[in-house]
Amino acid sequence: MGPDLTKLDWKTVSARDEARRARVQQILDAGGAKVGLDYFHAAMVSQHGMEVANYQRSHALAVKAAELDPTLKQARWLAAASKDRELMHLGKPQLYGTQFRVVEGKWELHAVDPSITDEERAKWNVPPLEEARKKVETMNARPK
């Protein structure tokens, strides 16, 4: 089980994350990313931003990582998750079912575009939608 997210000092965490994103951008601008894993790690740092532009950047970097290294399954998943996070923050349904949120004290799966199939999810290393729905039940069953 991870840290209790309700007890974190989010101001400190956000400032540290912003500094990390700035440093990653410097590395990218200097041509420091060479292989898929470099782009994947850069995408992960961007994914944890607070603005839509961060998620868009994360998606582009994760797609690049997957193109450079097709065996990098986590890059495909991150490309899907960053696209879902972007859509969620724009108030639109997500495509793949990777994003959850708390509403009135309970976890829920953010709305999902019904036209996306589990076969499409599999291409992006995302489990079937039914697994995401079961995950919500598990998350809500945890002691508070």
Rank of each mutant, 00 (worst) to 15 (best):
A62L: 09
Q94C: 04
N140K: 14
K134S: 05
Q26F: 01
M50W: 07
G31A: 12
Q47S: 10
A75P: 02
E131R: 13
V24E: 08
L87C: 02
K134C: 00
G91P: 04
V24A: 11
K106T: 14
Y55G: 00
L90T: 00
A75R: 11
A81T: 07
W124Q: 09
Q74H: 09
Q47V: 03
T138A: 15
E108S: 09
A75C: 10
H89A: 01
L28F: 04
V45Y: 00
Q25F: 02
L5F: 11
E86H: 01
V136E: 04
D29S: 10
R21K: 12
D9W: 08
K106W: 05
W107I: 12
E18G: 01
R21P: 00
A15W: 06
I27F: 00
P70M: 05
R85C: 04
A66I: 04
Y39D: 09
W107L: 13
R85L: 08
G31S: 12
D38P: 08
A33C: 14
G2Q: 08
P128H: 13
A141D: 12
R21I: 04
L8V: 15
A79D: 09
L109R: 08
N54Q: 02
V126H: 06
D17V: 04
Q94M: 08
S115T: 15
L37H: 11
G32L: 12
V35L: 11
A79E: 10
Q74W: 06
L28A: 11
T117C: 08
L78W: 06
R57T: 13
L90M: 06
W124E: 12
K73S: 13
R142H: 11
P128Y: 10
L109G: 09
G49E: 11
G2T: 11
A22S: 05
H59D: 03
P114R: 07
E137F: 00
E18I: 05
A132Q: 09
D84I: 03
K144V: 11
V45H: 01
R16W: 01
A122N: 09
R21G: 00
A42L: 06
G32H: 10
H48D: 11
A30N: 14
D69K: 07
L5G: 04
R20L: 14
P70I: 03
M88L: 11
R142K: 15
K92S: 05
W77Y: 15
E86Q: 13
Q99D: 07
R101A: 13
S46Y: 15
A33Y: 03
D4Y: 03
L78N: 10
P127M: 14
E67R: 11
P143E: 13
V24N: 03
M44V: 10
D69P: 03
Y55V: 02
K134F: 02
M1S: 12
V136P: 02
S115N: 04
G91R: 02
K144A: 14
R20N: 14
K83E: 10
G91F: 03
D38H: 13
L87V: 07
Y39K: 08
W77F: 15
L90Y: 00
A141Y: 07
M44S: 10
T71N: 13
E51W: 10
P70R: 02
A15D: 15
E119T: 09
A141G: 10
A53F: 05
L129I: 15
L87A: 02
F40S: 03
K7W: 01
K34W: 01
A33T: 05
